[in-house]
């Protein structure tokens, strides 16, 4: 009896129904387990990078994505004070392009940036096939199926949070920048030695950055590739690789490791860890230079006189208090 029922068709139908039920359950669980705020206490991953959720809707014009080089080296508050542009750094430690893509999608749910700056160092992070699959999944379905990211929250789940809608309240004064007033000099040799050799960008990174480009085009956003000064992660071979990549796609690319005198950069005072990441002083110099570039090439509004943005002036004052070098 039972055997004869197990025809191929019924097996396929059963499998599909089973997967459907599982999908629905996962969607429900994802909703229940997702953090309902973007504060540190809410359990959201990287609260600094996700502060854009609680900025006024469509108030951010420039978004920076990338890895730790980006959140150490880009200072939205400097950009605000010198040029009046509103920006947010949604960078995360070890963020790879797929993570940038996922982040960008989250940003687009509540902001309408005019420019996205992608820090290119993450393109060279080595990932294995398993990680690529997970990253690809997260960049496409990471939000609805956030249970895979937030499953460990079962330990801290509060009943009152389970069914309510998210309500974002965090206020990040630095707009995603991680401030460090430490100074550790890099006194080694010059690392940008001109060469014709070229590093290979992992194919998965190429594919994903192309997806980011597509997403930007669909939403009328300009895309700018940027490399922060970093002795330990950058070299001329990588520069050549990204330069070629950008040229093929007609994307602008700024490499701040070249001609560092342009912005008066000094490895003995501007790094917090001896050549890998920038400190607040380095970030200030770099951001002003980027601001000049943006002023020249893009038409971004200056909101400094706009009363709707008065909070930014307050934030700048707070930010200054935390700058010690």
């Amino acid at each position: 009896m039972e055997k004869s029922k197990n025809t191929l068709l019924s097996c396929v139908v059963k499998s599909i129904v089973f997967i459907l039920i599982l999908t629905l359950l996962l969607l429900g669980l994802s909703y229940m387990m997702a953090p309902k705020d973007n504060t540190k206490e809410s359990g959201i991953i990287n609260p600094n990078a996700t502060g854009f959720y609680s900025e006024p809707k469509n108030s951010i014009d420039v978004v920076v994505v990338g890895n730790s080089d980006a959140y150490s080296g880009f200072s939205p508050m400097e950009l605000w004070n010198s040029f009046g542009y509103t920006s947010y750094v949604s960078a995360e430690g070890l963020q790879v392009p797929a993570g940038s893509l996922a982040m960008l999608k989250r940003i687009l749910t509540c902001q309408a940036p005019k420019l996205v700056i992608l820090e290119t160092d993450g393109m060279f992070t080595k990932t294995d096939v398993s990680q690529n699959i997970i990253n690809a999944f997260n960049s496409v379905l990471g939000e609805p199926f956030s249970v895979f990211r937030y499953h460990n929250r079962w330990k801290k789940l509060k009943w009152k949070d389970v069914l309510r809608k998210p309500y974002y309240t965090a206020h990040c004064v630095t707009k995603g920048q991680m401030l460090s007033n430490k100074v550790k000099e890099y006194s080694g040799k010059e690392y940008m030695i001109e060469t014709d050799e070229k590093d290979k960008i992992p194919p998965f990174s190429v594919m994903t950055v192309d997806k980011i480009k597509e997403l930007c085009e669909e939403n009328g956003i300009e895309l700018l590739l940027l490399e922060m000064p970093s002795e330990s992660s950058w070299n001329y071979k990588r520069h050549n690789a990204v330069k070629e990549f950008a040229k093929e796609r007609d994307l602008p690319f700024i490499d701040l490791n070249l001609d560092r005198d342009r912005f008066d950069f000094d490895w003995t005072t501007d790094s917090r860890d001896g050549g890998n990441h920038l400190n607040t002083r380095g970030a200030r110099k770099v951001t002003r230079f980027i601001g000049e570039y943006l002023q020249k090439h893009y038409d971004l509004p200056d909101y400094r006189e706009d009363p709707a943005y008065s909070v930014w002036h307050e934030d700048y004052k707070e930010y200054l208090k935390q700058i010690k070098i």
Binding site: F18, L22, L25, L26, L29, I45, V147, R149, H151, N152
Partner: peptide
């Protein structure tokens, strides 16, 4: 039958020690 299987899968997804940390 399906409840048992679904419970097993969800238990792995939620209580499995994987992901950040």
């Amino acid at each position: 039958r399906w409840s048992v299987y679904l419970a097993l899968i969800l238990a792995i997804i939620i209580f499995g020690a994987y992901g950040s940390g």
